[in-house]
Nucleic acid binder design. Structure first.
Lengths: 348, 348
DNA sequence: TATTAGCACTCGAAACTTTAGAGTGCTAAC
DNA sequence: GTTAGCACTCTAAAGTTTCGAGTGCTAATA
């Protein structure tokens, strides 16, 4: 269908979308005529609506009801949004956000948690914040820190300043200096290597190269593997499950159950978010979504980078009827906020 | 009311509780007579029920309905349970639990998450797992690990083998050896002190004692504070929000909203759990609960210790109609399971 | 030709009514 | 003390009715 809409059609469609997003009720021709006076009679609007339905932009739940926007209509709307339509948050909302951020921020995790909460409150939907650590960091060196007679702490340091550690048993009879030499040799071997490039084969080489105590070797290997895992882990923060109850579309318990199910599958959620991480802002409407369980939902997702690296993903999940414009504005604002905060923390 | 129930009354009350827990429907005299044959007519049961209602153990939603157990009835039931009534899980359930645990366990956190999931599945209610780190650990020493020309990593080690770390700026002109000496002096000063005992006053003493570079001092202090915070943090894992939808008592959206609200207030939940941490097993029924929002719910909570220290709390939150016996059995089983798993990890 | 008033028609939501049945309490008999 | 019998109660479910918002079509109008 490559028909271009007339300006009046666009206008009417827009009003219907706005009204429906606000009220969640099918919109009738009279409503449009009354609420927004277009200098046009309901009958005319009716005719236009009929056309819009034929074009696939409107749907009728049943004959004697008003009409609701189709997925295609939202698509059109969202696309037109991104084309320059100036976003922007009301000063009121900004103030709210700022005050919410001040509530409780002790750690980095708190910031993410707060962000999720704020995002859900502003969007009146469920929010997900994914803090990515899909890091390209490189091995710098390792070291043993003394703990007691039988145990030591294996510390592994990356060039980016991340540290991971674990307790290892000291093999009977091994001296402190010997361990230090061992650590140094392994360090030299792996220094500068990207963690992703430290494969099992490489670790085997290490084994041969150091040819030291076997149990210690196992500890070292485990330690390195653990660092790798920790570096690649990404943390997820959920907010606003409660909001589901406010959305009329979830009065139907079955739909709610489905979405809650998705939210409980942490791995699936992560996959969903990772799938959209390449484009900065991604809006997935209804059946555009490939993951089962949320195919009658929409997802707005924004991925942010720092020096080319994905550092975080914000997402809002809800019914297709969503305040797209507002949510996108909020995300934009949060992004800027986070940038500032993160930098401050970096400085510390 | 210090009336002792006759054996028959106890029996009948028990049956009513059982039936109600299973069906969530008010129980009538005929149902009891038919389902469990007591060699007694419905009329007789009716008389007894009438008495039990007077004694406060039963309630009638309305005249022409059956009766449901009161909070007092559950209390009686639960108390009788703990008095030796042999608990025990069906082999079937045990097998289920074991298989669920095998699904995905990479880290310690996964274990807790799985535990929450299992607990919620078995109880058909929301579960909370609190991993306590209310630790009594002591400062052992600190050390600077080199990172680059301008930064170093401050590592703080406790006697228990916990390590925390952070990046600090190296003051201009300060040499590696100088920093090492500084670390050694602070270490000597704080060595062996319980983290809880490291107050601001003590930190001030440190400041005077080391009288070194000011910015480095600030970094050190912050580092120590961070370790303290990290050590005392306790992590919470939630499971089975979805389960709420299965419980008929939450058909009423308002009740659901309340409970979800509580679940989103992490701090409040923690407080609730901490409040019951002294007794090993605590069952709070309905209005016994002092926290608002869950006063028509029950909470079953079990706190576990290792060497006298609280290490974890399992809890199930749900309507007063709950499978108390089963939940307690499951908790018991999970506890034993966790003990084994944790020990294995310790050994690693 | 585009717009609009007018009107018959549709259909769901809400209000109301009816019905069925589960449960009770009481009384009188066993 | 127990129980059969029965009148009475009250809810949930099913069935009606009513109301109104909304439509589509037609014919008049600009």
């Amino acid at each position: 269908m490559i028909t271009v809409l007339t300006d009046r059609q666009k206008k009417i469609l827009q009003l219907i979308i706005d009204d429906y997003i606000e009220t969640a009720e099918p919109v009738g021709s009279r409503t449009i005529a009354r609420k927004y006076n277009l200098g046009i009679s309901p009958a005319t609007i009716r005719n236009e609506m009929s056309d819009l339905e034929l074009l696939g932009y409107l749907e009728q739940p049943h004959t004697s009801a008003g009409r609701i926007p189709s997925a295609a209509a939202y698509r059109l709307y969202v696309d037109s949004l991104s084309k320059g339509d100036s976003l922007g948050l009301s000063p009121n909302d900004m103030a709210l956000i700022n005050s919410w951020y001040k509530e409780r921020v002790h750690s980095i995790d708190d910031i993410f948690q707060s962000t999720a909460k704020i995002l859900s409150r502003m969007s009146k939907n469920v929010s997900v914040v994914l803090a990515n650590k899909d890091s390209q960091s490189s091995f710098s060196y390792m070291k043993f820190l003394p703990l007691n007679a039988h145990q030591a702490i294996l510390c592994i340091v990356t060039e980016e300043g991340n540290v991971d550690h674990g307790v290892v048993e000291i093999p009977a009879g091994m001296k402190q200096e010997e361990m230090e030499r061992l650590a140094e040799r392994v360090s030299r071997f792996l220094n500068g290597k990207k963690l992703n490039d430290i494969t099992n084969d490489l670790l085997n080489e290490v084994r041969e190269a150091i040819a030291g105590d076997k149990s210690l070797y196992v500890s070292i290997i485990n330690g390195i593997k653990k660092v790798k895992a920790a570096q690649q882990e990404n943390k997820m923060f959920l907010g606003g499950t409660k909001q589901l109850l406010n959305q009329p579309e979830f009065k139907d318990t079955e739909r709610m159950r489905e979405l809650l199910g998705v939210l409980e599958e942490e791995q699936m959620l992560k996959d969903m978010l990772m799938a959209g991480k390449d484009s900065g802002l991604k809006v997935t409407i209804g059946s555009e979504n490939k993951f089962s369980g949320i195919q009658d939902c929409s997802m707005i997702q924004a991925t942010y980078r720092l020096n080319g690296q994905v550092v975080g993903t914000l997402a809002v999940l809800g019914p297709t009827r969503m305040e797209y414009r507002k949510v996108i504005s909020v995300m934009d604002y949060l992004h800027n906020y986070l940038k500032v905060v993160m930098n401050k923390i970096d400085e510390k």
